[in-house]
């Protein structure tokens, strides 16, 4: 080491510089060695096998329990435990944990209030917040060591992993999409009554146009034309409601599965020599988790607000 010539006082270097030099000295050969020959213990790091369906670990009766169901149980248990810890003895002057939980809840509540207004915001807020927390904790737990790596032999004798991030299962995303869909339509009917359906079946204008034409007024043809467009637009809106099921599902599923695979690939390619890169991948995945949770919750909120809006011009 060249810095020995300089001598005393942390070998003559500042601590950060020394750390950097040591890291360089350790990591550089490791990296070169790793990339050229495969990392240390490269036999221990398997190539990522992309297995989209979640593996069944065991059955309860005829009901199959997959590894993603187990992880979502963990998430649910964790969240409920947290809630119980905070609200078992709620204090008006909060402690740290209570402050943190209250801050998250208040933040989500303000978000709902800003988008949907005071009254609707209060109605939408529990579902939106639960979606946010569920997706977020699923995504974050997925980064905990053990997730995606803990091997176990399942009921059929196959080697599978015990814990797999719940978001990487299409069923979790689909379940959330179904929930969001149901609640959005429920609120649509709740705030507009059966008038909510008028948004999708807009045939009124076309009928009026035909009526005018039968009464011998040529101006009715314009209404017939625009009425036809209205009808098609309404049906498109109806179609969109169901397309949302797919877009919600695949947005979450795709992002989360992609992130998982990205980290596995990074780890496989660089091995332990990938020190630094894999961590960046982890940080990136944390960010993606937060963003996806926010997108899922936010879109649910926005669609719910749109569905619950009163369509004044169709009321005359």
């Amino acid at each position: 080491m060249s810095n020995k010539k300089i001598g005393c006082g942390c070998l003559g270097c500042s601590i950060p510089l020394l750390t950097f030099i040591i890291l360089l000295v350790i990591i550089l050969p490791l990296s070169i060695f790793g990339v050229m020959n495969g990392a240390f213990g490269s036999k221990g790091i398997p190539a990522p096998k992309v297995e989209l369906p979640a593996e069944v670990i065991f059955h309860i009766g005829v009901f199959p329990v997959t590894n993603t169901i187990i992880t979502s149980w963990i998430t649910v248990a964790l969240l409920i435990l947290m809630a119980l810890l905070v609200t078992r003895k709620p204090k008006l002057i909060p402690g740290r944990l209570q402050s943190a939980v209250e801050a998250i809840i208040e933040w989500m509540y303000n978000f709902c209030k800003d988008v949907a207004g005071e009254v609707k915001g209060r109605k939408f807020f529990p579902v939106v917040t639960t979606i946010f927390l569920f997706v977020l904790i699923n995504a974050l737990l997925n980064l905990v060591p053990g997730y995606g790596t803990w091997p176990i032999t399942n009921y059929a004798g196959h080697e599978v992993i015990l814990l797999r991030g719940a978001n990487t299962d299409i069923n979790t995303a689909a379940a959330l999409a179904v929930i969001a869909f149901i609640f959005i339509e429920f609120w649509g009917f709740k705030f507009n009554g059966l008038g909510y359906l008028k948004k999708f079946f807009t045939v009124e204008r076309a009928f009026k146009g035909w009526g005018k034409v039968f009464h011998g007024k040529l101006s009715g043809f314009g209404d017939v034309l625009f009425g036809a467009i209205d009808t098609i637009v309404g049906l498109l809106e109806l179609l969109l409601e169901f397309v949302r099921l797919l877009s919600f599902t695949f947005r979450l599923f795709g992002n989360m599965t992609g992130g998982e695979i990205l980290i596995l690939i990074l780890f496989f390619l660089l091995g332990f020599a990938g020190f630094g890169f894999v961590q960046v991948g982890y940080i990136f995945e944390m960010l993606v988790g937060v963003v996806q949770a926010l997108i899922f919750a936010g879109l649910t909120l926005v669609f719910a607000t749109m569905a619950s809006e009163h369509h004044g011009e169709e009321e005359h």
Binding site: V65, I69, S72, A166, N171, A174, A175, I179
Partner: peptide
């Protein structure tokens, strides 16, 4: 079944 389980979970 998994879908239903996740909906119930949620």
């Amino acid at each position: 079944p998994t879908l239903v389980a996740q909906i119930v979970n949620f």
